[in-house]
Lab assay of single mutants.
Amino acid sequence: MASQGTKRSYEQMETDGERQNATEIRASVGKMIDGIGRFYIQMCTELKLSDYEGRLIQNSLTIERMVLSAFDERRNKYLEEHPSAGKDPKKTGGPIYKRVDRKWMRELVLYDKEEIRRIWRQANNGDDATAGLTHMMIWHSNLNDTTYQRTRALVRTGMDPRMCSLMQGSTLPRRSGAAGAAVKGVGTMVMELIRMIKRGINDRNFWRGENGRKTRSAYERMCNILKGKFQTAAQRAMMDQVRESRNPGNAEIEDLIFLARSALILRGSVAHKSCLPACVYGPAVASGYDFEKEGYSLVGIDPFKLLQNSQVYSLIRPNENPAHKSQLVWMACNSAAFEDLRVLSFIRGTKVSPRGKLSTRGVQIASNENMDAMESSTLELRSRYWAIRTRSGGNTNQQRASAGQISVQPAFSVQRNLPFDKPTIMAAFTGNTEGRTSDMRAEIIRMMEGAKPEEMSFQGRGVFELSDERAANPIVPSFDMSNEGSYFFGDNAEEYDN
């Protein structure tokens, strides 16, 4: 993207840094990872977990959730003011799984939030270390993106479920800051804005008074975040219109849905970061690795190297396929839920299948599930090659597409044709070009129609051997075009429920 120079890199967003050079960025990201790792080690000690239990991804998720809940100030305040039966607002906890007599047992633990905050700050040299908290939120978000298709949420806001490739980060909490905003897809931002506008339509006082002023500035800020994701002048001009509207209503909703559809071809720039579970960072720190000293990046080879040398386990339900569970977590670790499966298959070195073909449910185990038949197995999170994460949407291309997802959002900077089903997408653009945004709409449609099938995206960008740390010898991959490109292809993934 041309304006790259004016933006802070995501590592800076990730670490609240002012302008830093590459070495400083690597050190501050490393410091953040160190903090998460030290916190995780301490929690495993508190909970008396064995090494194996500490490497269980379900335990990692519970521990991450506990610290996120302990620092969720708004919710904590709300819980104190609106006490609900049987919930102690000062405590947080969740299921911890232990191996007892050759069987997995679930144990519900409860801790004072104050105590968890103390352990977290102690692991982070006394700081609140917001960057580390956001990092864990993005890992949870990436896992949700890989596990669930947001059909219901899309339909509720009037969008087409086939636009799911635009929904990265749709389950990120509001408090995820600049680093969170960077990884949100165009569809996620559109959905947040539509929800806001709908509230304004239904509630006369939404934009009024002292609160209304705050609401208005939040609305304009979200519009600017979305505008910054678009790469064409016409899309940005249309966002200006939406932002400046005196009284946002149905016309703005129409414009936003139009823009979301246009992003299936004229893709937005959305950041991709490899955020790993805390149970990967903990053992690495415990083994003596100093992330701050060595430096770390979320968008280069580092996460690949770390996963190459990590042992992570997962509980497996009786009829689940461990290899499929591994694929789910591998995609989440690489922030690749909406990437082209052919690119992923090449990088991973084994075939990556669409969601609907995987015999696996989510990673988390519900409290009512029976533990008797639970097994555990090693997650295979290694890769054959590594590639640089991208934040450009890439230019655009036609490809055989599917009944489910009709476009992709690249996660890796790797040369390819970008699949999208042009006739299906263009069919949504018939007729409606009147109104105050008509010239911009016409211009956007013209650009979409001009998108050429034979153009290559990320020209000359390749993948790298894991021994090639400096990215000196790019390998331009070859793809098996007979395979499906979309992950949520004609899909039956479970729906995400809060």
Rank of each mutant, 00 (worst) to 15 (best):
R221W: 12
D421L: 15
V186C: 05
N473V: 03
M105P: 07
V329P: 15
N498D: 08
K273L: 09
G17S: 12
V155E: 04
I316K: 10
Q4F: 00
T424P: 01
A131C: 05
H135W: 10
V408A: 14
M331A: 02
R8Q: 13
Q149D: 11
M426T: 15
R65W: 10
Y496H: 14
M32I: 04
V299E: 13
S170E: 11
D203S: 06
D480I: 09
E494P: 05
R195M: 06
E192C: 04
T15F: 10
N483L: 01
N309G: 00
H140E: 11
R106N: 05
K273E: 05
A181P: 15
M189D: 09
G349W: 02
N205R: 09
V363Q: 09
Y148E: 11
F304A: 05
E495I: 06
L266T: 05
N319M: 07
L172V: 09
Q399K: 15
D101Y: 04
M371N: 04
E81C: 09
G394H: 15
A472M: 13
M481A: 03
T430A: 12
E18H: 00
E18V: 01
G288N: 10
M222G: 12
F291G: 06
A131K: 15
E107V: 14
P410D: 10
E494I: 05
M481F: 14
G132S: 15
G349D: 08
T424C: 13
T157H: 04
N124G: 09
G5P: 03
R355V: 10
L466T: 00
R382L: 04
N498F: 00
V414P: 10
T6N: 03
R156W: 07
E454Y: 14
G37D: 10
M13D: 05
L358S: 11
S262Y: 06
S69F: 06
E454K: 15
G362E: 15
M426S: 14
N59Y: 14
F346K: 04
K7T: 03
G35D: 10
M191F: 10
G295S: 10
A2R: 07
P89I: 01
W139Y: 04
P161T: 03
R74V: 09
I425C: 14
A442Q: 01
G94T: 04
G86A: 00
E14W: 07
G362C: 11
I253M: 02
R195Y: 09
G362F: 11
V183W: 09
P453H: 02
D203T: 07
A493C: 10
R236G: 09
V270M: 10
M43A: 08
R75E: 08
F489L: 04
Q308R: 14
A153G: 02
E449Y: 08
N370W: 06
S9W: 10
V463F: 02
Y40T: 01
N492I: 02
V190N: 13
I253F: 05
S170V: 08
M163T: 08
R348P: 09
Q398M: 05
I365Q: 08
P354T: 06
L344Y: 13
A153K: 02
K305S: 05
M374Y: 05
P474I: 09
G462C: 05
S69R: 09
A233S: 08
F412K: 01
G393Y: 10
T92G: 08
R221N: 13
M440G: 05
S326Q: 11
R261T: 08
V100R: 00
M371R: 07
R99H: 14
R174H: 07
L110C: 07
S345N: 12
E115K: 08
M456V: 14
N498R: 15
S287Y: 10
M43G: 09
G177V: 04
F71S: 14
S345G: 12
I301Y: 04
A123M: 07
M196N: 14
V190C: 12
D372W: 06
V414S: 15
P283L: 00
S413R: 02
W139K: 08
F338T: 06
S377K: 07
M167S: 04
A411E: 03
S50I: 03
N21W: 09
A153Y: 09
G404W: 13
S84H: 02
L358D: 11
R118H: 05
R236W: 13
V183H: 07
W139S: 01
Q327H: 07
D497I: 15
A373Q: 04
P423K: 15
Y281E: 07
E465V: 04
M447W: 03
N368W: 12
L133T: 12
P410V: 09
N211A: 13
E465G: 13
N370C: 00
L143D: 14
S402I: 08
Q58H: 03
V363M: 08
L226A: 04
M159V: 15
Y496I: 03
E107S: 01
S402V: 03
D497A: 03
N205W: 12
S326W: 08
T171C: 04
R8S: 11
V67A: 03
M189L: 03
N334F: 02
K325L: 08
L154F: 14
A218E: 09
M447E: 04
A323I: 00
G212T: 15
K227C: 04
E455Y: 08
G132F: 11
G212D: 08
A451Y: 03
S345E: 14
R65A: 03
M191R: 15
E81S: 03
P474F: 07
T390H: 10
R213P: 01
G158R: 03
R317K: 04
E443A: 06
K31F: 09
R384V: 04
L49R: 01
L379F: 09
D240Y: 12
W386D: 13
D72E: 06
L79D: 04
G35I: 07
R75L: 05
K87M: 15
P89W: 04
R74D: 10
L264H: 15
L344C: 13
M331L: 03
E107A: 12
T62A: 14
Y111Q: 15
E294H: 00
S383G: 04
L381R: 15
T232E: 05
P95M: 09
D240K: 05
A70H: 07
E46W: 10
V270K: 10
Q58G: 02
V329M: 04
S69L: 09
R121Y: 02
M167F: 06
I96D: 10
C279M: 12
T360H: 12
G490S: 08
E455T: 02
S297V: 14
Q58P: 06
Q409P: 03
I406Q: 15
D112R: 04
K273A: 09
S141N: 09
R361A: 13
T130Y: 06
P248H: 10
P95C: 09
G404L: 05
I41Q: 06
S297A: 07
T437M: 10
R175P: 15
A427W: 04
R195E: 10
P453A: 06
E210F: 08
A251F: 13
Y496S: 02
I444C: 03
K229D: 11
T147M: 09
R382Y: 09
S467T: 04
N395H: 04
Q311W: 09
A181I: 09
L381C: 10
D160W: 09
M13E: 03
T130C: 02
D240P: 12
E244M: 10
I347A: 02
P83R: 00
S269G: 06
A332S: 05
I96A: 03
N319C: 01
I96N: 10
A471Y: 10
R317F: 11
P283Y: 14
K90V: 00
I316C: 00
R75F: 11
E339L: 03
P354Q: 05
Q149L: 13
S486R: 10
D16C: 07
S165C: 04
F71L: 03
T62R: 01
F489R: 10
D127Q: 01
Q327I: 12
K198Q: 01
K90D: 05
R74Q: 08
M374S: 03
Y78L: 02
E339S: 12
D468Y: 06
N492H: 03
P474N: 09
A129R: 12
K7I: 06
D101H: 02
R391G: 14
A337T: 15
M481K: 12
E454R: 04
G35Y: 10
E369W: 11
F39D: 07
E46L: 03
T130P: 06
K103A: 13
S345Q: 00
R436N: 08
L418E: 08
S413V: 03
L47Q: 04
G362I: 11
S345F: 10
T360K: 13
Q4N: 01
